[in-house]
Amino acid sequence: MGLFTRSRPIRSLLCWLLLAPLIALNLFPFAVMLSTALRPRDEIFINPQRWLPSRLAVENFSDMWTSVDYGTAVLNSLYVAVASVALVLLVGIPSAYALSRYDFRWKRKYQLFLLITQMVSPIVLALGLFRLFVWLGWIDSLDPVAIVVAAFNLAFSVMMLFNYFSTIPRDIEEAAWIDGASATASLIRIFLPLALPALSVTAMFTFVEVWNEFVITLTLVRSSEHFTLPLEVHALASNLYELKWHHIMAAVLVATLPVTALFMWLQRYLVGGMAAGAVK
């Protein structure tokens, strides 16, 4: 079903050539980050501009790290991401399991409801959320952020898990029931291990989403000691009178590289994951 030609080398070249402009645009921001983060301070606002600095100013990272207490932001981001992912899985697995294994009266309504929650964006609810947590007296803490972010990511996770779960033949569980295992035990011992790839992909998805979340955190978090990475970077870039782009880009790099690495490692599951419902 080759679209172009049957010769693999020529086809490969053609494919790469066609993708090249997009790939270049994707890599461009990374080049900007690296090029800027490694410059000395007086080589930022220069004209004509250049890609390579006169020397590698690696001290930008340590200067930035200490001047804004970046370690706290890293820990905050980790905390929110891990808590959110845990909550999404904890709540999402039973939902997806119910949808894939049971027939119940409210099934369609629940699916529609999930769909709606997926369609609503945090920004539309930002004001309402803020007033809600004010009313609960639970503002300026990372826990509500984790809960809210989890709620907004639930629908997508349930959908992904559901697609996977549907591919797992129920004969396997039934065989376990016949062997005398309780439903719960078969869920934990037989079903979940089979669903492990699905769980890790879903977890990764949620992790990346939460790690990058901005609007909810901007609305619910007040003090800088609770800033997550996107908020810290945003704050750095909103300095009024002086923009230290070399520090900002260093901060962006630190926040981005680990997640990008994780993403590179896990992205191969993405396509399989989203199509899982289709195969078999």
């Binding site: 990346v208 990058n212 996107p230 970077v233 962006v252 981005t256 590179m264």
Partner: peptide, 9 residues
């Protein structure tokens, strides 16, 4: 690749 980077950043 761009998927892994926060929109804000």
């Amino acid at each position: 690749l761009p998927w892994s980077v926060s929109l804000t950043m």
